[in-house]
């Protein structure tokens, strides 16, 4: 019998939704290629229904996540960093297979770990730092406090498959939001493998949901979904960015375009990224005049 060459078995990477790893509802997949154009894996080509499922998972996870103390969210972000540190080898191999040099892959992972720890520290601090006590001309205490927006839809940047995703997730969940991320179409493997890190790092199911698929197909569904409170994207084509803003305007959705190049520098981390995804609530609290009322405290 003639010797047969072995057929390669390519892994089909699955979505991460609600703390589980489902295949896309549509049953579709697409080939992920390396820099030489050779197929190295398959990824789910998610449909609008996967977006819908991801958003409802994020919405139901939101109140629980938002009600955790900032300190606890910080612990969990730190844990993600620890788990990522332990999976360096796997992620490095993936990045290399997608065209990184070994040194660049190593640098990207280290930066990602550091960035997670950076935001872990901010979790219980940004609120006090950005809150204010406002002077008002009546007998009231007047506070302004940042609060999480809710569910954030995110489109990952093209050329930072891991660091880009971490730079999106970390400020978003540090501030008590939950999110749905569409991984980069060409290089989704690191993002979707990062889901395994999140899954093993005490992140409650549904807080982060990661889909793979075609941006052009899903961009409209994500930005027009009424239950998405904000959309963050990177360096979009002019027409796409306009579309996102128009969709957002329909129901007062916040839209942001962050700079992908900046993410690769020290300026890619800042509490202002957390603040982008916060709404400021102002509270008026009556002051009882102790002296005139005879000390009713």
């Amino acid at each position: 019998m003639a010797k047969q060459s072995r057929l390669e078995v390519w892994k089909t990477y699955k979505n991460y939704v609600g703390g589980q790893f489902p295949r896309t509802e549509s049953g579709r997949s697409y080939a992920v290629k390396n820099a030489m154009g050779k197929t190295i894996a398959n990824a789910c080509q998610s449909s609008r229904k996967d977006v819908r499922d991801g958003i409802s998972a994020a919405r139901s996870a939101w109140s629980g996540w938002n009600n955790r103390s900032g300190f606890n969210r910080g612990q969990i972000l730190y844990r993600i960093a620890e788990m990522l540190e332990g999976r360096k080898k796997q992620l490095s191999d993936l990045l290399v297979s997608q065209g990184y040099t070994a040194a660049a892959a190593n640098r990207e992972i280290n930066r990602s770990v550091d960035r997670l720890i950076y935001y872990a520290g901010w979790c219980d601090k940004y609120q006090s730092l950005f809150s204010t006590v406002n002077p008002v001309a009546s007998a009231h205490y007047n506070f302004s406090v940042p609060e999480s927006m809710g569910v954030v839809g995110m489109l990952a940047p093209a050329n930072a498959s891991l660091l880009g995703v971490v730079s999106l997730i970390a400020p978003c969940i540090a501030g008590g939001n939950t999110c749905l991320i569409l991984a980069d179409q060409e290089k989704p493997l690191a993002a979707i493998s990062f889901a395994e890190v999140l899954h093993s790092a005490d992140v409650p199911g549904g807080v982060v949901n990661i889909l793979t698929g075609y941006q052009q197909e899903l961009i409209d569904w994500i930005s027009s979904h009424v239950d998405v409170n904000a959309v963050v994207c990177f360096d979009q084509e002019k027409a796409d960015w306009q579309k996102i803003q128009e969709n957002g305007a329909g129901h007062i959705k916040r839209t942001f375009q962050w700079n992908a190049k900046q993410m690769d520098t020290a300026d890619g981390q800042s509490p202002y990224f957390i603040m982008d995804l916060q709404e400021v609530k102002t509270t008026w609290h009556p002051i009882q005049t102790i002296v005139s009322k005879g000390g009713a405290y």
């Binding site: 609008r48 977006v51 819908r52 958003i55 569904w221 027009s224 979904h225 009424v226 239950d227 969709n247 329909g250 129901h251």
Partner: peptide
Amino acid sequence: MGNYQSPAY
């Protein structure tokens, strides 16, 4: 309307 809705509305 053609887009997914939110229970908030």
